[in-house]
Amino acid sequence: MRGKIVGKRRKPLQAAEFVIYLFMGLFALVTIYPFWYTVVGSFSDGMDYQGGGVWLFPRIFTTANYSVVFADARLWTAFGTTILRTLAGTFLSLVVTSCTAYGMSRPNLKFRRVLQWLNMFTMFFSGGLIPYVLIINMLGLYNSFWVYVIPSAYSVYNMIIIQNFFKGIPTELHEAAVLDGASEFRIWWNLFIPLSGSVLATVALWCAVGHWNNYMQTMLYTNNPKLITLQYYLMLLIKEANVEFGELGDNITSQVTARTVSFAAIVVASLPILCVYPFVLKHFAGSVMIGSLK
């Protein structure tokens, strides 16, 4: 943003600037290299990789690792569960959080202070893990798909972000809708939600990434192999890669090792993130500002 201030004419780089540019470029390389390393490993011959020194390009190119990954039924189950939970969880989150945010953003809300306080308090104090697990079990959510969706549906932080956006919508629009006889519920659904595309998209993407990357819930709330999520499956695979082959053993050929297979699985699991990432980028700078203004 300073670029604008300095002027449209691009000045030649000064020495200090050159150092900064170089340093930042190096940092970017360091952040991106692990991903490259993984992609290279995933296309490498397992035995050849074992010999070491496969850093920039595969020495012996093969897609065998991907064949093993794609043939693994566990991966597809995990993929399906994760996609479903991400979609359902994100949708429910948006509905619940924006509905609450609408209520909290209206000036005629009664008991506002109490409600605000009740919301804020949970951001700083919690009952801890064990009682939480108990509640989940008592609600019958243990070993249920809904354990991924319902408990995380409401987030105070996201509510505040959406609420701040709602507060910025001109009151005239709300008044006009009231004159037309719309109920608050309809105003939220038919007027405010369509007007809040950018902030809702941001929150949706945060929720989606959170759902996609979570594995603790799988460890805590289920022992059903059908409910294993992608990241949990990956962790099993990666930890196996350090020790020995697990259930993948049947598919093993001389071309793959546990490690190179885990690379392929990592790449497959990251692809969806890579696909939504450009959309996150488009929205994030603005939305982060909304968050920090509160």
Partner: peptide, 23 residues
């Protein structure tokens, strides 16, 4: 209506944040 709408989130907080506090 406004109060009910803002209570939706509160319901989740009661179940998943405040109830566990009794634990």
């Amino acid at each position: 209506q406004v109060f009910l709408m803002s209570s939706v989130g509160l319901l989740f907080l009661i179940v998943f944040s405040y109830l566990p506090m009794f634990g």
